[in-house]
Nucleic acid binder design. Structure first.
Length: 712
DNA sequence: GGCATGTGTATTTTT
DNA sequence: TACACATGCC
């Protein structure tokens, strides 16, 4: 029977879809129908009789998984695709660990902390241990976490990581090591997992006697998308998941590897055939997305790459329209040019939904966002600072977290510091009063400790309700209201004397999740109005949080979903939600992976932005920046605009007049690449700060020379 | 001693 | 803008 999903496929795609059992590597260049192929393969497997819930589809984002499964659902039996296990490595790890975690001594009710919680914990420990005393340059909390994460994900030891990635921290190796040790201990005793733990524990799960086999046997087929962006730990997990059958499909493109900062390594894709003998390799080379001139320019950029695996990307979509390189006076001029071009395409019938602006770093779109808002052009921004990272959202989540896991020290700490007159010191004391910090490092034998964990320890919440914590006088009133709010959520009643008249902590008495959030917000509102400058905008975020919570019955599920799959929205400039049907996309290049638009605008194509000044230290870093630029270019189907501002103003020191430096075009548009572009200039009469005609060329050359001096 | 507040500085990309 | 550190206030 010829299934309908085979009709639109070319011979290579078809070969990949129809591949039977055994390892399969699909090398798929940008725009070669990789998603279509993967989706069709899932549909084909289901059609072949593989039970959907025995298929595991690992993707880079939850969004990608959802989209693929919806599309597969349309092809295969309707209900079946919904049962496929799909999601990110981290999300799948979470799911598996909730089911099988006991097999490795993990409590079922662990909570997951995100990056900023993790770095807060590092900071707390750094202060507690007093390791940084007298050392001005001891690594910051973010750096500590980055070092830690690198070591875990790349599976390298600390001294290796310090040597190769953080040479300026080498002197502090001892302190760092102490912090890491304590970091791990605290996470374990309070049943908290960080992102890296999810992967580590999954890996251990695979190796555990008995359980490992069970977990591996759970899936008949495993498919992995974006394989070039996995790290060695993830590769090891996959190996562990394929103990008996070797049915594994990975899809990737070495030219799109852009996550080495997260320890992703191209080696995974290169070594795949070695790890899985008898791998079938299928290469997809026909690009269906971009018109030929755009593809030609993208290929030309990559042809300069020092290391490259031959792929011949080609397109049937002929066109006379070259990609367009626009030179702008400065960022102001760039913003105007972008808006003009967006509106021009819009008027010629290309809706905002099919246009995107891409940039290297999240803040690169700041000025553009203001201007879009001013002109009432609706947009959504992806990447960069997330909803979940806003301080007020973290505050709200901290409340929910301690209700879920009363031993969550980080969340307690965050909350206690909100109260008047409470600083780090009193917070510590209160934590001890409540029994949150289970300090006992008295070495307990492992077996005994596991028992201790399963024996109910008096919950800090119970202690709180029983009035066992005495806050400093200035905080007393707020603290009392806090107790009432928490008790309300848990369905516990506190008598007027502060006594507990009903125990609480039984599930049936708790308020429904949205009501809990509402109750906590009423408590929190007066505090955060004092704390933050712009309460109105922030209040909207909290309302949005309540909105999202409507769809959840389980608080734990809600918290975990929010940490593993945060909604990527910026409400700062957004209009009230749902009113616009058409909006355009602003995105970091990283977050644009896998997406495509009719019209793509890449801004800040200047050296120092792309490649980022932060990433020009080594040849490898520059190569990754080059691939990043290539990824950005290949998102475009019909129109590609690249903007290059000539001048950048220094933001230092109040008035921005006259203090500027000249930029150079990104080094990735070389003299060989440049003729492949149509060149335009955005200098216009409407420019409110017209180009200074007196500006001598020699000064520009001087500044360029100076800039090279700093960089060189 | 411990908390609030001011100042200088560095600032990528994300699960 | 957020973080790390210094100073001043109770």
């Amino acid at each position: 029977m010829s299934a309908k999903w085979l009709d639109d496929l070319n011979p290579s795609q078809r070969q990949a879809v129809l591949h039977g059992d055994g390892p399969l590597l699909i090398v798929a260049g940008a725009g070669t129908g990789k998603t279509r192929t993967l989706v069709a393969r899932v549909a084909h497997l289901i059609d072949r009789g593989v039970p959907a819930d025995r298929i595991l589809l690992l993707t880079f984002t939850r969004r990608a998984a959802a989209e693929m499964l919806t599309r597969a659902g349309r092809m295969a039996a309707q209900d079946a695709a919904g049962k496929v296990w799909g999601g990110t490595f981290h999300a799948v790890a979470n799911r598996l660990l909730r089911i099988y975690g006991r097999g490795i001594g993990l409590s079922q009710d662990f909570t997951v902390m995100d990056q900023s919680d993790a770095s807060d914990m590092m900071n707390l420990i750094r202060n507690d241990l007093g390791v940084a005393k007298g050392d001005k340059r001891f690594p910051r909390k973010q750096t500590l976490l980055a070092i830690y994460s690198r070591a875990v994900n790349a599976q390298e030891n600390l001294s290796q990581v310090l040597e190769s990635q953080f040479p300026w921290c080498k002197d502090d190796a001892d302190g760092i090591q102490q912090i890491f040790q304590e970091y791990t201990r605290r996470k374990r005793t309070s049943s908290i997992l960080d992102y890296d733990d999810l992967l580590l524990f999954w890996n251990i799960l695979c190796k555990a006697p008995g359980t490992g086999q069970t977990v591996a046997d759970k899936f008949d087929h495993i498919l992995v998308d974006e394989y070039q962006d996995t790290n060695s730990l993830q590769a090891e997990i996959l190996l562990g998941m394929r103990k008996t059958n070797k049915n594994i499909t990975v899809v990737g493109d070495d030219a799109q590897s852009i996550y080495s900062f997260r320890a992703a390594t191209v080696r995974n894709i290169l070594d795949f055939p070695k790890q899985f003998p008898n791998t079938t390799i299928v290469t997809l080379e026909q690009n269906y997305r971009s018109i030929e001139p755009i593809l030609g320019a993208s290929n030309a950029v990559m042809s300069h790459a020092t290391e490259r695996f031959t792929k011949n990307l080609w397109s049937k979509r002929m066109s006379a329209q070259k990609p367009i390189l626009i030179t702008c006076m400065d960022e102001r001029n760039q913003v105007d040019a972008v808006c003009t071009n967006i509106l021009a395409h819009h008027e010629r019938g290309i809706p905002l939904m099919r246009q995107a602006v891409l940039f290297r770093a999240s803040h690169h779109s700041d000025m553009l966002e203001v201007e879009l808002a001013r002109r009432n052009i609706p947009f959504h921004k992806f990447g960069g600072l997330k909803f979940i990272e806003a301080a007020h959202i973290k505050d709200m989540l901290a409340f929910l977290r301690i209700l879920e896991n009363p031993f969550d020290e980080i969340s307690w700490f965050r909350i206690l510091l909100m109260f008047d007159g409470v600083g780090p010191r009193s917070a510590q004391r209160l934590l001890d009063d409540l029994g949150v910090r289970r300090l006992p490092p008295p070495p307990v034998p492992a077996a005994a400790r596991e028992q201790a964990v399963s024996v109910p320890i008096e919950s800090p919440l119970r202690r709180l309700f029983a009035g066992q914590a005495s806050p400093p006088p200035a905080a007393r009133e707020q603290f009392e209201q806090f107790r009432q709010a928490l008790a309300g959520c848990m369905g516990a009643r506190l008598g007027p004397d502060g006594r507990v008249s009903s125990a609480g902590e039984s599930d049936d008495k708790q308020l429904p999740l949205p009501a809990q959030i509402e109750r906590l917000r009423r408590f929190y509102e007066p505090i955060f109005e004092k704390l933050y400058e712009n309460p109105a905008i922030r209040l909207r975020d909290i309302e949005q949080l309540e909105q999202i919570a409507q769809g959840y019955r389980s608080r734990g599920r809600f918290i975990t979903d929010l940490t593993l799959d945060p909604p990527s929205s910026t409400s700062d400039f957004a209009q009230p939600p749902c009113l616009e049907e058409d909006w355009m996309t602003l995105s970091t290049i990283h977050s644009a992976k896998g997406c495509e638009w009719d019209v793509v605008h890449i801004i800040h194509a200047a050296d120092g932005m792309i490649p980022s000044d932060m990433s020009t230290g080594s040849a490898e870093e520059i190569e990754e920046e080059r691939r990043l630029f290539h990824v950005a270019m290949t998102r475009a189907k019909d129109w590609l605009y690249i903007y290059f501002p000539l001048r950048y103003y220094w933001k230092r020191g109040g008035n921005m007049h006259d203090r500027h430096s000249y930029a150079q075009l990104t080094r990735f548009i070389t003299p060989i690449v440049r003729p492949l572009f149509e060149e335009q200039s955005a200098f216009t009469a409407q420019q409110d700060a017209p180009a200074d005609p007196q500006e001598p060329t020699s000064l520009q050359q001087l500044d360029d020379w100076l800039k090279n001096l700093w960089q060189g």
